[in-house]
Amino acid sequence: MRQTIEGYLFISPWIIGFILFTFLPVAASFVMSFFNWRLIQAPVFVGVENYVNMFTADPLFGQSLQVTLIYVVVAVPLQLAFALFLAMLLNQRVRLLPFFRTVFYLPAVVSGVAVAVLWQWLYHPDLGLINEMLRWFGIKGPAWLVSPQWALPAIIFMSLWTVGGTMITFLAALQGIPQHLYEAAELDGAGERAKFWHITLPMLSPVIFFNLVLGIIVGFQTFTQAYIMTKGGPLNATMFYALYLYLNAFNFLKMGYASALAWVLFLIILVITIAQLKLSRRWVYYEFEEARA
């Protein structure tokens, strides 16, 4: 009994914080999503109108959802693959490992406004470094952030620069794979490719899964890059969902509509995450973790 009271006392900061800053706001957001509330006027109950309007009267909702889905579907797997590639390079018992690890990780630390401003300059159509480097190979680079076709790919490509955190989780997991598994496979005549597919990937699957779930959640909330670099343009080609939601809430002051948008985002993330948890039983290999624990 004393333990119970003390236990709850210790976690009480989180319980209070959870109620005040998570549970009540989430509930309020749900209620608000059924109101038309322009902040300056009194809220008016409109039922499911906000949700209906999204699908019938607001092309930007579909556009922003599409932009964000493309980003998540393309960028997250690329990020994981690139991070894994870097980690496997570093796992080759290379000399100067701490040096290379630092270089690869560095961009991840500084992410935020500065990175967005810096890449805007790198992507400058005439003066930017990227198009300059393309010129060395005789390629005339696109206008990147000011081109409707290239703006989203540019933001996707740029996200590969900050995969350092993911890389380090992969590297740690690679170093945790027992060497004898590879030795046994070699005795059985397994080549490099077989070892990668049948040992490395299954042993990494819990970390891949963790990074996939997290990457998707973060990807759906992409904001800073779009806000700083493109303001959603050109022609709404980079109108990310989180940016559109922000504009609705704090530029157009449509608090009710923004709340409805937030709930749709929440449901999407929820469904995808639960689906991943269910699917993970088919491909995530946990025996080793359990055996070790």
Partner: peptide, 17 residues
């Protein structure tokens, strides 16, 4: 589970609060 909750959901009510 709360790590999964997008900030967008709590952002507007917190602002009003």
């Amino acid at each position: 589970g709360t790590m999964m909750l997008p900030f967008a959901v709590t952002m507007v009510p917190q602002f009003i609060l």
